[in-house]
């Protein structure tokens, strides 16, 4: 292991590190929004939208991100839709993450007893009011562990962005290996970089889960 090689590569890795973080953040935020909409469409059995949501979840969960990215980046231009690599990456991550987040939200909503829903309806609440005051506040707490697991999963999936040459962490390492053949050094930095992102996050999310459980159930 040659430390000067590592030191010299740090500027590139720092850039890759921030790009990984940035794309993850945007992709995860988008996934949460898609997931919330999809799960509510399913929960309230909205006609039409519900079937669309089911088809989307089926496709998204049963195909790999790599194929989704290739389809968006190389396949869609055949239909006249041209997107840059970065935009394709973020859309791909949202397409994949949306269904995972939707399932996480749904499992949370299902923890709410049907009686509450019926009471809400009896009080004359509309679907939007039910979602706002009954389903989401309680369901959200129950879905935190699954949402947290998805956040970690999606950050790791950004490593696949390298196949469409987005210069995130993994791509940076592979590029450097291709140029200078120092695989030990660059892979070491790569693993450390992911550990720097994921270990504190994983600890933080576990802490959050515990807080939420305490706040909800008192144990």
């Amino acid at each position: 292991m040659d430390w000067t090689v590592i030191a010299r590569s740090l500027p590139q890795f720092t850039a890759g590190f921030w790009l990984t973080l940035k794309l993850s953040a945007i992709g995860i935020l988008g996934s949460l929004i898609v997931g919330a909409l999809v799960s509510l469409a399913q929960y309230f059995k909205l006609p039409g939208l519900r079937q669309l949501a089911t088809v989307y979840i089926e496709i998204s969960r049963n195909t790999p991100l790599l194929v989704q990215l290739f389809f968006i980046y190389y396949g869609l231009p055949g239909l006249g839709v041209k997107l840059s690599a970065t935009v394709s990456g973020v859309f791909g991550l949202m397409f994949l993450g949306g269904s995972y987040m939707a399932e996480a939200f749904t499992s949370g909503y299902n923890a709410i007893s049907k009686g509450q829903l019926e009471s809400g309806r009896a009080l004359g609440l509309t679907n939007v009011q039910l979602a706002r005051y009954v389903v989401v506040p309680q369901g959200l707490a129950a879905s935190v562990p699954a949402l947290a697991a998805n956040v970690i999963f999606l950050i790791k999936e950004t490593s696949i962005f390298t196949v469409i040459a987005i210069p995130e962490l993994t791509n940076t390492a592979l590029d450097l290996i291709g140029l200078y053949y120092r695989s030990n050094e660059y892979l070491f930095v790569l693993v450390v970089a992911y550990a720097i992102i994921l270990i504190p996050l994983s600890v933080g999310l576990t802490w959050l889960e515990r807080r939420v459980r305490y706040g909800t159930f008192g144990n």
Binding site: E58, I59, N62, Y74, G75, P77, G78
Partner: peptide, 24 residues
């Protein structure tokens, strides 16, 4: 044939789906 890529990746999509969906 620019549309060729669309079909190739589309079929790949379907093949992975056929493998994974029944298991899910």
């Amino acid at each position: 044939h620019p549309a060729f890529a669309f079909w190739v990746y589309g079929i790949m999509f379907i093949m992975y789906y056929i493998l994974c969906a029944p298991l899910s």
